[in-house]
Amino acid sequence: MDGLSVGSLYALIALGYTMVYGVLQFINFAHGDIVMIGAWLSFWICARLGWAGNDAPPSLARAAATLLFAMVVCGTLGFLIERLAYRPLRSAPRLNILITAIGMSLLLENVGQLPIVFGTENQGMPGLLPKETLLSVAGVNITLIDVLIIGCSIALMAGLNHLVYSTRLGLAMRAASFDTKTASLMGVNINRTISLAFVIGAMLAAAAGFLYAVKYTNLNQPAFPTWILLGLTAFVAAVVGGIGNIRGAMIGGVLIGLLEKFGTAYVSSSFKEVYVFSILILVLLFKPTGILGSARVEKV
């Protein structure tokens, strides 16, 4: 159960990686930091509105409002990052965008550490949701938070699935990821489509950040390695599922989450990342395009 809920978080983050890779073919290293910003924003708004005290009762409406706030702000942030840092480099070699992404990641981390932003202290996320165990089946405790996380992720992913596979915008996005040049000849507004991919990716990352903060209430300081590892694991999930493939990212995320939890439970907890990266290397060696990815013929 834990694995499923963590897996769905990974899936949410992985979607952001995979969408950006799909349209721009580059690894957005700043994506993990958007998750961090999302988590910290939800803490920040709770603290501002006085919902952070211990006596504040758990409330679903407040949780929803916090989630919405984090998603909107991060969506805007994602748009701005693409507009200011990545768009001017669209025609440059991909390595440059990659370096810019690393720079952006450093920037987000260190701005987050400023005392006027989030500071360098670890904080405790307020319990917005009641910590109840709904039922236990065969020794497995199913908590309300896990159920909500899974439900929330499924709802978001279903929404995305609908957007990508049954609307004109989604068609444009798929066309752009298939062949940018041809798509723009066919009248797809490439700039708007790429912006959209970034905005949606950032919003999903913010949602994942919020849910992560609700599940693991101890918020680490913005530059703490856990955030980057969270991003990296999600990235592995995207690759395992087949990078550039939206449904693959969902499957990959859940798979990695389950693997990580089962490995921790049955073998040893200190090798958590080793499982993740070993699976990555195995998948890359035997099916480099991932579970759902299709091989592309390389042209001369």
């Binding site: 840092a85 480099l89 440059n96 810019t100 720079g103 952006m104 450093l106 920037l107």
Partner: peptide, 8 residues
């Protein structure tokens, strides 16, 4: 970080 982005 800023100078890195600006440089790129």
């Amino acid at each position: 970080a800023l100078s890195l982005i600006a440089f790129m």
